[in-house]
Structures are given as C-alpha cells and as structure tokens.
Design a protein around this nucleic acid. Structure first.
Length: 222
DNA sequence: CCCTGATTCGC
DNA sequence: GCGAATCAGG
C-alpha cells in the first residue's frame, strides 16, 4: 500500500479528529499503526499527548518556587508562538473543566480581560492563553470505513476540516453517523451551539442538570 | 500484560 | 520516504 493523496488526506483528518494511530491504521488498511505514526510525523501533523516525556524539568533552582498562577497576566497578548516552531497549532488535549474561580477573588473592573462568553456559559479562551479542549472521545473501534448512502449530504469523517463543527451525531459504526458540520465557533472544534453543550459552566449543585451530554453519543453497549 | 505515541535507523 | 523495531509512560 502506498500513501496516495486520498489516504494521506484521510490520515490527516482522522488524526485531527482524535483517532488513535491504531484506529487510523485499521481504517486505511494495509498499514500498521507505526506506519501511520511515522507518516503523521513526516507530514508534520500535530503531536498528540505522548506517554513518553521529552525529559525537561530542570529550571527550578534554589528559589522558593513561587506557584505560578494558572492565569498569566499577558492574556491579551497575541499568539506567543515561537517563530522557530513549525507547528502551526497546538491542540494539546486538556480537561475541559476550567478552574472554578473562588468567589473570594473578584475581578478588577479596571483590568478586564477581553473574553467572550458562549451560550452555555463557557468562557472563550484568548489566543495563547490555554490550549483548546480536545475533540470528542474517539470511538474505540469501528468507524464508517466507506461513505454510505445514508451519510450522503451530511458531514462525514472525510469532510472534517478546521472550520467546521466536529460534533458527532449518531454513533460511530452506524450508517448515518456523521458530524455537525456547521461553521465553528472560532477557536473551538465545535459550532457555537455545540460549544454550549461541550463547555458548560459549573452550576450550583442545587440546580444542576442530570443529563450531561456525551460526545459521540456517549457510551454504548454492544 | 494491555494500550498509547515518539523515535531510531536500515532499507 | 517508508515502517518495523524499539522505547517509554499510562
């Protein structure tokens, strides 16, 4: 098997949507997961959280190690990405739950951080502030290998790109499994509406809603 | 053990 | 460029 443009395209999109190398290899067929990983790196695709540490933590001297606040002061600064770094975007997965600010720390009105707040109450991250949340949990196995008729006109796996909502509709493996496909809320993998589902503000326990929406249709029994 | 992705290196 | 072998963390 060779890396045709089509297969490379599939690899890119699956990698981008959070599929594991094993799953991508199964989907493509004829290649091992090692081949997929190797190709992904050669293509310069975004690194995924690796189990292996790069080994780099020797900056702590005898200084009384002040705990760095989670919120840097330079929140409004534009993308501080190093110019030498070839990676155009860093999508290192991070827990969607943001730190719940204690009520004892009121925001200074004199120094407002420019943020927009979505319909679900989620707080929009400014550039360079924090890494965006990960895509929905990838399915363990089956992914529609071939576009079926049921998916015609809908946003399939191969239609994913950086500008459309990756919110999954239906269950992976089912014929009509597809993605939302709306225009994304800039900076997020989802559209505004689905950001509202994905990022819910922490509500008081008294009136919390029981059904938390789960990406990819939630856990499934087979 | 299983899984994962990263890296190396002979081809 | 390719990918098996190897490594290393979870």
């Amino acid at each position: 098997m060779s890396w045709t443009e089509e297969r490379i395209d599939t690899l890119k999109k699956m990698w981008d949507s959070g599929m594991t190398a094993t799953q991508i290899a199964e989907e493509l067929g004829g290649v091992s997961r090692n081949a997929v990983i190797g190709k992904a790196h050669r293509l310069g695709l975004q690194s995924r959280p690796s189990p292996v540490k790069p080994n780099e933590a020797k900056a702590e001297a005898i200084a009384p190690a002040p705990k760095p606040a989670a919120q840097p002061a330079a929140a409004v600064a534009p993308a501080p990405r190093a110019a030498a770094e070839p990676a155009p975007r860093a999508a290192t997965p991070a827990p969607a739950s943001a730190s719940a600010d204690a009520p004892a720390e009121p925001r200074e009105p004199s120094a407002p951080v420019l943020r927009s707040v979505g319909p679900g109450g989620f707080v929009r991250q400014n550039p360079g502030e924090q890494t965006p949340p990960i895509s929905p949990a990838p399915p363990r196995r089956l992914v529609p290998a071939k576009p079926s008729d049921a998916i015609a006109g809908k946003t399939g796996l191969l239609d994913l790109n950086d500008r459309i909502c990756k919110w999954p509709l239906g269950h992976p493996g089912e014929p009509d499994f597809h993605f939302c496909g709306d225009k994304v809320n800039p900076g997020f993998p989802y559209c505004v509406a689905h950001c509202g589902h994905a990022y819910q503000a922490q509500l008081p326990r008294r009136d919390r809603r029981p059904p938390p929406p789960l990406p990819f249709g939630g856990p499934r029994v087979r």
